[in-house]
């Protein structure tokens, strides 16, 4: 079984982001970048499937700037076999490269690579869209199982437990299929130093997004990026009685 794992390079989840002074986007320079946490979980899941003897090859792909190859190296240090970097100079967080374009680019790569399973993050923590996996599934006509917290592959199908608003739902999808990961699927490993060294020698293909036959004119024009309404810190109260008094008489919420 061959697994295809699309990943994205994003601002690290620990960073408090800064809005550009002209409100045209989020400051990306001199900021710590990382692999999108959900995608790291996707890579980990693929590596576990390989370790358990179910998968034979893991291909990771990212679309982004030249530097995005860092996240491919990270994924290869975790255990992916090879990487594909699709380069673009355009912003991949907001205002330029959009989920629909990414889904179309991935579709074309998947038609060449012919994986049995695609595992990807449910959302990227920059634009928070939560769209690409579902779009890809619809474009390919492959079944989907999103927000996965457990994946069991058996023969030509995969049983997936999904985290949904009402609880947990279990589905069985025929492969090839698209799965998207939720937080509780697994806890990604740290790559060991020897594996980081080994990853540097693993094959990495570079392609240009412009070479794909896609219309890359954004459908959504980014008008501005602004601060959310500010919430002022309130006051500290002394004790439980003071709290109850405030809630009753000032906020009037109880």
């Amino acid at each position: 079984m061959k697994i295809f794992v699309p990943i994205k390079r994003v601002i690290d989840y620990n960073v408090k982001v800064r809005i550009k002074p002209d409100n045209s986007g989020i400051e990306q320079t001199n900021v710590k970048m990382s692999i999108n946490p959900f995608d790291e979980i996707a890579v980990e899941e693929a590596v576990r499937l390989k370790e358990s003897g179910k998968a034979t090859e893991i291909v990771v792909v990212t679309i982004g700037p030249e530097k995005a190859q860092e996240v491919l190296r990270t994924a290869m240090a975790m255990g992916a076999d090879r990487g594909i970097l699709v380069t673009t100079e355009e912003a991949i967080d907001l205002g330029a490269i959009e989920p629909l374009m990414i889904a179309k680019c991935l579709k074309s790569l998947i038609e060449q690579e012919k994986p049995d399973l695609v595992i990807m993050g449910k959302q990227a923590i920059d634009d928070d869209s939560n769209q690409t996996g579902q779009m890809l599934s619809a474009l390919l006509g492959w079944p989907q199982a999103t927000f996965a917290s457990e994946i069991v592959t058996e023969g030509d199908s995969t049983t997936v437990t999904r985290e949904i608003d009402g609880g947990l739902e279990t589905l069985k999808v025929k492969m090839p299929a698209i799965l998207t990961t939720d937080l509780r699927l697994n806890e990604p490993r740290y790559a060991s130093l020897p594996n980081i060294m080994k990853a540097k020698k693993k094959p990495l293909d570079v392609k240009a997004l412009d070479d794909f036959d896609l219309n890359t004119t954004p459908r959504l024009k980014l008008i501005s990026v602004d601060e959310p309404p500010k919430r002022e810190a309130g006051e500290k109260v002394e004790n439980v009685d003071a709290l109850i008094d405030k809630l009753k008489n000032e906020a009037k919420v109880i």
Binding site: E98, A138, R162, E163
Partner: peptide
């Protein structure tokens, strides 16, 4: 934008060849 809508709408969006606006 519940897990119901998140699961479904991007598919419709892709088939109509339009870019969804989430959330």
């Amino acid at each position: 934008a519940s897990t119901f809508g998140k699961n479904l709408l991007p598919r419709i969006s892709a088939l109509l060849d339009v870019q969804q606006i989430s959330d």
